[in-house]
Amino acid sequence: MMISALVALIIWFSMTPDVNAESMVLGETKLVVTVPKVIEEEKVTTLAASEPNDPVEKMQVETAAQNIAIGYRESLKFAPYSQPLTVNDKDRLNPNKFIPISTPIFGEEQPVSLSLNKFRFIKPEPVEVWLEGDGIQSAQVQVGIVGEKNTVYSAELQVNGGRAETTLAAINLPIGDISVKAIADINGQEVILVAHAKYMKPSAKLINVASVAVEQSDLLISLQLDVQEAGIYRVRANLYDGELPLAHLVGKRKLGTGKEFITLKAHQSVIPQAAKALELRTFVVERMSSIPGEGTRYGTSEITDAALPDVDISKLDRTPYTPSEKELASLAFLEQLAGAKN
């Protein structure tokens, strides 16, 4: 069987349990890879046995691995729980953004597009739906479960010029992966667009920032949650200095029900010494899958931003981040796959 560069990536991702498949598809997760504690002899043997013989194939595999290795080596300058963030990291700055569904219309200069206000919704949030394009005469939406033919709810859109819109209330929305089908009359042409989204019961609620403290090279930020469903939780947030994005922070912990806490850590390497207005934004609360076939659940947040005014960052130990043995083993594996010489 021919092995391509894509297969090399699949091999690597299959050995990366901390990278959630769904978040990769949604563009939430960047390549912050984690290698198994031990690369077993069986896996090494399997990889060696399946190495491509074709020179072009081998070059593709090595080039793909080299690119990953270069990116990973750069990421090791920073702690994996505290990666730098810039204005260009759109997926992390807006992780729940819905990408509009568009189609060209015969005889019209502009396409018509279907949009939702976001991709993931937590009950009882409403879902905002709108169509944009020239020549919209009328439109309606039909809501159902993805993969099923039955319509659970339908509604007419209010047309105003080149926009038609409506708001779907929680009482009319099913739990699960939902489809929102828009059927529009565009100057006598019937146009159908379908959007998919997730509508879920909440698993936990982020209440507030409980405390902030300096511990050696890390800024520790303790978050309080009200957990409805116990499990392994991952909380993400973006650290800002005023309007300047600094870092994407990730914390993970097994939580029980009720009042629980999870800690985010910001390493000194992402906090400028001149920072004056540290603030957390863009909270994402995930209950991670614990068994095969179980999907990721999401929670809500009572806060959209949280200032960290009382922290004294001058107390941070400015020692550079030192990669762990696990991370160094990860890099060594990638460089071996890339054909790098030690």
Rank of each mutant, 00 (worst) to 15 (best):
S23A: 14
P55H: 11
D54G: 11
V33Q: 03
E74V: 09
L31H: 04
I70D: 04
R73M: 08
E74Q: 13
K58P: 00
V61L: 14
E41P: 02
L85A: 09
P55K: 10
V33H: 01
K90W: 11
R73I: 00
L93D: 06
P80Q: 11
A65M: 15
P36Y: 06
E40P: 02
N53Q: 09
A49V: 00
K43W: 14
P80M: 12
F98R: 11
G71H: 04
R73Y: 09
E41H: 03
E57R: 05
L76I: 03
K97S: 13
V61M: 12
V25S: 13
T45M: 02
N94K: 09
V56E: 13
K30R: 10
T63G: 01
S23G: 07
V61D: 01
N94R: 10
E57W: 06
D54T: 10
S23Y: 01
K77F: 02
Q60Y: 10
S75E: 08
E57H: 13
A64N: 03
A69I: 05
K37D: 14
S50P: 00
D54K: 07
G71T: 05
F98N: 14
N67M: 12
A64F: 06
S75H: 05
D91V: 12
Y72L: 03
E22Y: 07
T63C: 01
K58C: 00
Y72M: 11
I68C: 02
G71E: 11
V56R: 08
Q60C: 07
A48Y: 04
A21E: 11
V32T: 09
A48S: 12
T34D: 14
K30L: 09
D91N: 15
E62P: 05
T45Y: 06
S82C: 04
F78T: 08
V61I: 05
V56H: 10
N67W: 11
E62T: 04
V35G: 10
S82L: 06
Y81T: 08
P55N: 02
N53S: 14
E51D: 03
A79R: 09
P52G: 14
P95Y: 03
P84G: 11
P84D: 00
T45F: 06
Q83W: 04
K37V: 11
E51W: 15
V33I: 15
T29H: 09
I70Q: 01
G71C: 01
A79T: 05
P55F: 07
A48P: 00
P36D: 08
D89N: 12
L47Q: 02
V25L: 15
P36G: 10
M24N: 13
P36T: 09
Q66M: 08
V87H: 00
V38P: 02
G27S: 11
L26V: 03
I39W: 07
K30T: 09
E42R: 14
K43H: 06
A49W: 04
I39K: 04
K37R: 15
M24E: 14
A49G: 10
V38Y: 04
P95F: 02
Y81F: 15
V87F: 01
V32N: 13
S75I: 13
S23E: 12
M24C: 04
G71N: 14
D91G: 15
V33R: 00
V44N: 09
L85E: 05
V87M: 11
E40M: 08
V33M: 12
A21K: 13
K77V: 00
T63F: 07
V56I: 15
